[in-house]
Simulated scan of single mutants.
Amino acid sequence: MVEISAAVVRENRGPFSIEKGLTLDEPRPDEVLVRMVGVGVCHSDIYESQVGPTPAVHGHEGAGIVVRVGSAVTRFAEGDRVLMSFASCGACRNCLEGRPAYCEKFMTLNLSGARADGSRPIKDATGQEVFSNFFGQSSFADHALAAERNLVKVPDSVPDELFTVLGPLGCGVQTGAGAVLNTFNPNAGSTILVAGAGGVGLSAVLGAVVASATKIAVLDVIPSRLELATELGATHTVNGKDADVVARLREIAPGGFDYALETTGNSQVLRTLVETTRVGGQVGLIGAGKPGAEVTFKHSSLLSGPIVRGIFEGDSVPQQFIPRLIDLHQAGRFPFDKLVKTYPFEQIQRAVDDSEAGTTVKAVLTF
């Protein structure tokens, strides 16, 4: 067993409190023990802390250094720098077809709070099992376990100061950028509308710039985030609180946008995107609505052939896509670090509060 410190949530909507004296299992044959260097704070972490089982250790955008590897691990060794991404089984039909984000065991491996066999790798100081293995890692801790399939090796060319903030590439950044570059895969000169200027939406804006879109419109209600969207390459911004948003969007793209991406989880926003997409255009759904939420469309808006589809984890194979994003950053074409604000791990609750308030786009905890 490995003694660790971790941010534990003891009750729904309770604080993330740093606790010492927890224990983490030693790596199984296919697992890797990682000492954390940085970890992103995602709204999925916050949401699960509010409604999920407790006590719990969340965190799923980890970056760290390999401490030990299991006997069956072949691709990583002690001292490797790695990013931690979502878990997948590697054996189901979707995994074998190169679509691990749609792994048939995704819920079990990422959101059950345990390994596939039901075991929980973290116990607290009293010996109580803790909801853990979140997204195959639970990286709100100074050490975390991950399966070999979760990990992405970080090139030696990446400087340490950048490595510290790379964690969000494991989920939020690859989700937004991947929705554009992998799912839409637009031709140069396309028009793209992004609803929501959080970490995922602004990562999509960066992806749209890489894809050489000529019109990149961003819809949000926070002026500072719309300003940041412009800095990152958006050509147009629209405040969702303005009157007749649909008319404004139609002024920007009179024939409708080629692609639109919904990251807010707001069903009315999704309807707006469908109504402002061109004939035969594509609408991607990333934002998760409230449980039981329903969406309604005008019947006529669907007759023009828009493709509406859900997108998970940016349709990415992390071991392929994340190195591509790192290369783009090093070439000066993907400045995702402009989204990041760092906090010492001990200030996790402040980072969560700032994220919920919208004053921080992407918080990264450093160790």
Rank of each mutant, 00 (worst) to 15 (best):
G284A: 15
T276K: 03
R248M: 04
V245A: 06
A243S: 15
F321L: 09
G281W: 01
G265W: 05
I326V: 14
S304F: 09
G289F: 03
G256F: 03
S267G: 00
L261M: 11
E313R: 12
D327I: 00
F336T: 06
A331N: 12
F336W: 07
L270W: 03
G284Y: 02
Q320L: 14
P291C: 08
L249S: 04
L249V: 05
E251Q: 13
F257I: 02
I307D: 06
L285S: 04
L325G: 06
L328A: 12
S267T: 14
A243Q: 13
E313N: 13
L302S: 09
G289L: 00
N266F: 03
Q282G: 00
G289V: 01
R278D: 01
E294G: 08
R250A: 07
R250S: 08
T272P: 00
V308I: 15
S316I: 08
V317R: 12
A331Y: 03
T276Y: 03
R324Q: 13
G289C: 13
P306R: 02
K241G: 10
Q319P: 00
F257S: 01
L270D: 03
I311F: 09
G305C: 11
R248I: 00
D258F: 01
E275V: 05
R309W: 03
G289M: 10
P335S: 11
G287W: 07
L273Q: 03
G292T: 07
T276V: 15
Q330F: 04
E275S: 12
L302V: 07
F334G: 05
T272H: 05
L285N: 08
G305F: 09
R333C: 08
V279C: 04
P306E: 04
Q268Y: 06
L303H: 12
L325I: 09
Q319W: 12
D327V: 05
I286Q: 05
R333I: 03
G255F: 01
R278E: 03
H299F: 13
K241I: 02
Q268A: 14
S267K: 04
H299L: 14
I286S: 07
L285F: 08
I307Q: 09
I286C: 06
V283G: 00
F321P: 04
P335N: 11
I307G: 02
P306T: 04
H299K: 10
R333N: 14
